[in-house]
């Protein structure tokens, strides 16, 4: 357990964290501001990954794939809100859960019909498949560093947008009190639609960055959805800042816990027991963390609604 290994694992945790943030940022706004339970957010991740992989394959250029996939995911979110989601705002939460769960099934099946049930091929662009020495003798994949960079830039961008711009002020006002915001003359319908499409686009970007790293297949976004719900609960529903802090915490706790917990346990109990309990305990860590946060801060670390 050397210092370089801990540093490397911290980078791994950061990378997992910023990816998670991209998914959770949109979802926390949809849940917090629009008061809408949206379970099909993982499908946006999948749509982003498929769009980027398919366009990359057709054009042979990863950056063209990325450039075209971003507006595509924005458009898909915009259309989804226009055609289906806006009709569900007035329904109660249980019906929203059912309807958006149905959307998960719909999107997964649509992808299977369009692209087949097998995972499709996607790989790193050659220009980003190299390594960067983060410390002497500690190579780190350039693409993953890129993911961390892109994630942090987007996080900063969202922060500036929400805290410094007029539209950002409307978003914050909407999170705090949607009725009053609407009464003050803000077109809340358009605001909702744009928030929804932006959230879809951010999740899509997460998918585009995950595509070269993992299997691009139907249903690939669902595990991320569950993790991002944990992020939102810890961060506070509706708070982008909370989502960022919580996503980084979850990324680090999950990664470092997975790697170091079994060896830490080995100091206290015998090897066989540690090897058995280690992975099980590590996979529970983030949920234990969530429970602890809920006990002491029931509204999350950075509650949006005062």
């Amino acid at each position: 357990m050397t210092l370089t290994l801990i540093l490397e694992q911290t980078f791994n945790g950061l990378q997992a964290g910023v990816t998670l943030f991209l998914v959770a940022a949109g979802l926390t706004l949809i849940l917090g501001i629009m008061d809408f339970v949206f379970l099909a957010h993982g499908a946006q991740v999948m749509i982003g990954a498929y769009a980027a992989a398919a366009i990359t394959q057709a054009t042979g250029n990863f950056f063209v794939g990325l450039g075209l996939a971003i507006p595509l995911t924005f458009a898909s979110g915009y259309l989804l809100e226009l055609l289906i989601i806006r009709h569900l705002y007035r329904r109660d939460h249980m019906e929203q859960v059912l309807a958006t769960f149905g959307l998960i099934l719909f999107f997964n099946e649509a992808i299977r019909i369009g692209f087949g049930p097998a995972a499709i091929y996607s790989d790193l662009p050659p220009s980003l498949s190299g390594f960067v020495e983060i410390l002497p003798d500690t190579p780190y994949p350039a693409f993953r560093l890129g993911v961390i960079g892109v994630g942090l830039i987007i996080a900063l961008g969202i922060h500036l947008f929400v805290s410094k711009t007029r539209v950002g002020a409307m978003v914050r006002a909407g999170a705090n009190n949607p009725e009053m915001t609407a009464a003050l003359g803000v077109n809340i319908k358009i605001l909702f639609r744009l928030i929804f499409a932006t959230g879809a686009c951010l999740a899509g970007v997460a998918g585009m960055m995950l595509g070269p790293l993992t299997a691009v297949q139907s249903g690939m976004g669902e595990p991320l959805l569950i993790l991002s719900l944990v992020v939102i609960i810890i961060g506070g529903i509706g708070s982008v800042r909370g989502a960022f802090v919580a996503a980084i915490i979850i990324g680090l706790v999950d990664t470092l816990g997975r790697v170091f917990l079994p060896s830490i346990l080995r100091l206290f109990v015998e090897q066989a027991a540690a090897d058995g309990a280690g992975p099980a305990l590590a996979s529970m860590l983030i949920y234990i963390l969530m429970a602890v946060v809920l006990i002491f801060r029931p509204t999350g670390l950075f509650p949006a609604k005062g």
Binding site: L5, Q9, Q15, P141, L210, L213, M220, T255, R258, P279
Partner: peptide, 14 residues
């Protein structure tokens, strides 16, 4: 590893 795990980077670093 976790059943259904998608990112193994941490395990690969170790």
């Amino acid at each position: 590893t976790k059943l259904g795990q998608s990112d193994f980077q941490a395990e690969l670093s170790a």
